[in-house]
Simulated assay, not measured.
Amino acid sequence: MKVSVVYREESDHARAVIDFVRDYQRQTGRELETIDPDSPEGAQFCRTYDIVEYPSIVAASNEGVLQNLWRGLPLPLINELSYYDHDE
């Protein structure tokens, strides 16, 4: 499975997301993928998973099937995400 964080770097929520991603990496030893919704790839990702609110965190299987979606603040707990962040 794969966990991705969609957020805009130039936004009010950016600091909270950056801190969360750093803390997640520190606690789990794994990195979260970050996606810019304004990039072409990010825009396609947002259309695929119907993301219109930032930040959003997407947990998807390796085949791309949505497993869970968290929208907006507050961000989920690190242990909630780590459940989804593993190889199938």
Results as ranks from 00 to 15, higher is better:
residue 31 E to M: 08
residue 24 Y to I: 04
residue 13 H to L: 04
residue 33 E to H: 10
residue 27 Q to S: 07
residue 14 A to K: 11
residue 9 E to S: 14
residue 24 Y to E: 03
residue 48 T to K: 08
residue 41 E to A: 15
residue 49 Y to M: 06
residue 18 I to G: 00
residue 43 A to V: 06
residue 12 D to W: 00
residue 15 R to D: 01
residue 12 D to H: 05
residue 19 D to P: 02
residue 13 H to E: 13
residue 38 D to F: 13
residue 24 Y to G: 02
residue 13 H to C: 08
residue 37 P to A: 10
residue 9 E to C: 05
residue 26 R to P: 00
residue 41 E to W: 13
residue 46 C to F: 04
residue 41 E to I: 15
residue 12 D to V: 00
residue 40 P to G: 15
residue 30 R to E: 13
residue 35 I to H: 08
residue 27 Q to G: 00
residue 24 Y to F: 13
residue 36 D to M: 09
residue 50 D to Q: 12
residue 11 S to D: 04
residue 9 E to Y: 14
residue 45 F to D: 07
residue 37 P to F: 10
residue 16 A to P: 07
residue 16 A to V: 10
residue 26 R to L: 13
residue 15 R to N: 02
residue 35 I to S: 09
residue 13 H to V: 06
residue 41 E to Y: 12
residue 30 R to Y: 08
residue 16 A to R: 12
residue 23 D to M: 07
residue 40 P to D: 13
residue 43 A to M: 15
residue 40 P to A: 13
residue 25 Q to D: 10
residue 24 Y to V: 01
residue 33 E to T: 15
residue 39 S to H: 07
residue 48 T to Q: 10
residue 31 E to L: 08
residue 34 T to Y: 01
residue 16 A to H: 11
residue 26 R to G: 04
residue 37 P to I: 11
residue 14 A to I: 07
residue 44 Q to P: 00
residue 31 E to S: 12
residue 25 Q to L: 07
residue 42 G to M: 10
residue 20 F to C: 01
residue 12 D to I: 00
residue 43 A to Y: 15
residue 39 S to D: 06
residue 42 G to N: 11
residue 44 Q to H: 10
residue 9 E to P: 02
residue 19 D to F: 04
residue 33 E to W: 04
residue 50 D to V: 11
residue 30 R to T: 06
residue 31 E to I: 05
residue 12 D to N: 07
residue 39 S to Q: 10
residue 37 P to E: 09
residue 28 T to N: 04
residue 49 Y to C: 04
residue 38 D to N: 15
residue 36 D to E: 09
residue 47 R to V: 02
residue 49 Y to W: 06
residue 27 Q to L: 14
residue 18 I to V: 15
residue 15 R to Q: 10
residue 11 S to N: 05
residue 32 L to V: 06
residue 32 L to S: 06
residue 29 G to N: 00
residue 23 D to F: 03
residue 13 H to Q: 12
residue 12 D to T: 05
residue 32 L to M: 04
residue 20 F to S: 03
residue 22 R to Y: 01
residue 46 C to H: 01
residue 23 D to E: 13
residue 28 T to G: 07
residue 9 E to H: 13
residue 21 V to Y: 00
residue 37 P to S: 08
residue 28 T to L: 01
residue 23 D to R: 13
residue 31 E to T: 07
